[in-house]
Amino acid sequence: MDLTTFLQFFINGIVLGAIYVLLAIGLSIIFGMIGIVNLTHGILYMLGAYATVTLAPYIGFFPNLIISPLLVALLGMAVEAAFLRQIYKGDPALGLLFTFGLAMFLEQVVRAAWGPQGIPFQIPDVLRGAIAAGPVIYSKYRYFIGLCSILVITGLWLFLEKTPYGMIIRAGSHDPDMVRVLGISLKPVFTAVFGLGVALAAVSGVLASPLAGVEPAMGTNTGTFAFVVVVIGGLGSFWGSVIAGLMVGEVESFCIFFWPPMADASKFALMIAILLLRPRGLLGRRWERFE
């Protein structure tokens, strides 16, 4: 493997990882705040893609980066307010079962509404083709994905760390009771956080829509991989998800170079290795609330 090849696969790993990061952070934020493992995440990623292919003929591709996640977030918030809210007090397994059922339901709704076949969708004209940076020739659109991910991740981090809303979210995820004592109602916060988390899933769906086949099964595997990333990074940890997402991307990219049939399995092998060495994940903390 020469240097150029190495660089190509390395860059590719980062971009692959970027999509995993976006998915995983959303999942992680929801779990950190609400304590629900959201099994609809892969489906909401798919909904992001479907919203994009549906709206693109009218508004073009780029506005979808904002509009589709907003629509999916609205749906997520409605679900939170109508159903999820009822089960926070109950057994954590209830949340798991509910989101599992909802995922299956939504997949069938998509099948019924858009049909079981895929929908053709292309990369926007300006981003087609490849560009050469020295010896490294790489797809324009993938650079765009990388850029978008960096923007979203930075923006999200600033929001969580530097704004009063972010502070409430962080505080609420550590000690909800104390936040309530301070006179802050967590109900709308929970709804907003759920919306934010699923919006992130939808953003990755929008970015993936020109690359993967947009069809009802597209979310199934992706949702699973997002879990793997969250588990590796540590549930609820922001930077844990970022590092883990990039790691998984790199492992997958290089695994395809050396041993392609193991490309899918490599992610799980990494997860198992990390869990054996550090059961709470790379940057996972202990969560007193959940222990």
Partner: peptide, 20 residues
């Protein structure tokens, strides 16, 4: 020659290999 897992969502690494 590469064996590709079914349901692979991303071919970028395969395509890089082919191009090389």
């Amino acid at each position: 020659h590469d064996l590709v897992p079914t349901g692979t969502a991303d071919y970028s690494s395969f395509l890089l290999k082919v191009r090389n």
